[in-house]
Amino acid sequence: MHKTGTRQQWLDARLQLLAAEKELTHRSDAVAQQRQQLPWVRIDKEYRFDTPQGSVTLADLFKGRSQLLIYHFMYGPDFKAGCPSCSSIADGFNGIVVHLENHDVAFSAVSRAPIDKLMAFRERMGWSFDWASSFTSDFNSDFNVWFSEEQQREGGIEYNYRREPPANNTQQNTLEWRGDSDTPVGLMAGMTGTDIATFTRDRPGVSAFVMENGEIYHTYSGYARGVDGLWGMYQWLDRAPKGRNEQGVWWRHHDRYDQA
């Protein structure tokens, strides 16, 4: 049973929380400024992507704007469906993109699966945001969101700025990318129709780019819990009476809850 109290007791406690929330907001503003002060790194490699309009370059994804945000969506060529976590995050994209694009910021999701597979899943989910396939390029590998079977086996994965132990290492890493089929990562792999090893060679993330004087620069990338702030449902749950209140993976593709 949660503690109860009078309205005055609630107000006293709420004012204490308000001070903490304001402190968090100011700290978040400072971190955002630090993020924007990172040095820019020029992109010298020519990346191409498949889209419904045909083959395009990284510059084309800007669509005439000076900034580009890319969500690295976990959907590998062998997946039968997109990652359920990425899908839950992507459920919030449709309403946001129009505002970004009218504020000089282009947006696109990027995945390794072939474009026909991406478009079929997009239609199933009722999404309309831009989604490009990096199936024929090194883009996902270069931005540390895809790793080879050899890297996975030999401990060559560097994700979220940390090197992971080999996949056959019994040590459970903090991101729980290894485990049995009934672990969180195993359940998510099952929802994509693949096995854990295949599922975990693709990873989620967000990357930012800017174009200035015809040159493209990489400005930021975030991974793992670094994309948590983009996950709309959690921002709401953090304000619900019982918070996230979760044990393991409870979310599904939004059209699969009735089958859970």
Rank of each mutant, 00 (worst) to 15 (best):
R244G: 00
D50F: 10
M119D: 13
F199S: 01
R203V: 03
Y217I: 07
T219V: 10
T192I: 05
E23G: 00
K3Y: 06
V31R: 15
A189I: 08
T200R: 15
Q247D: 04
R27Y: 07
A197Q: 07
A90P: 12
W40H: 14
W250Y: 11
F121V: 09
S181K: 13
S28A: 05
Q53E: 15
S137W: 12
T136N: 14
E158P: 00
R239T: 12
W177V: 09
N168P: 00
V98G: 03
G92F: 04
W231C: 06
P39M: 02
D44V: 02
R7I: 09
H2V: 04
M125P: 05
R163N: 03
G156H: 10
Y159F: 15
A59C: 01
V56R: 13
N144W: 12
H218K: 09
F73G: 01
P184E: 04
D44G: 14
Q9R: 10
T194R: 13
P84I: 12
I216C: 03
Q171G: 00
D195M: 04
V97Y: 15
Q36E: 12
G179I: 10
M191A: 11
L175D: 06
L69N: 04
S88H: 10
D44R: 08
G205A: 00
D29V: 05
N169F: 03
M211F: 06
S181I: 11
M74V: 12
F79I: 01
Q34K: 14
Q8K: 11
L230Q: 11
T200M: 15
W250D: 03
Q259P: 03
V105Q: 11
T192R: 07
G243R: 08
I115C: 12
V31T: 08
E158W: 08
F49P: 07
P52C: 01
T6W: 14
E164Q: 10
Y234S: 03
E149K: 14
H72L: 08
N168F: 08
Q8T: 08
D238V: 01
A197D: 10
E150S: 04
T174V: 10
A109M: 12
F73K: 09
W146Q: 13
F135E: 15
E212M: 08
W127I: 11
E212C: 04
K63L: 06
T183R: 07
R203K: 12
L24P: 01
E149N: 09
D50N: 10
G179S: 10
P184V: 03
Y159N: 06
G205Q: 02
M119C: 05
M125S: 05
G5Q: 09
P84D: 07
P52F: 05
M188V: 08
A13Y: 06
A208R: 15
D44P: 00
D130R: 13
T6E: 04
S55K: 14
L38V: 02
M125D: 00
L118F: 08
G155V: 06
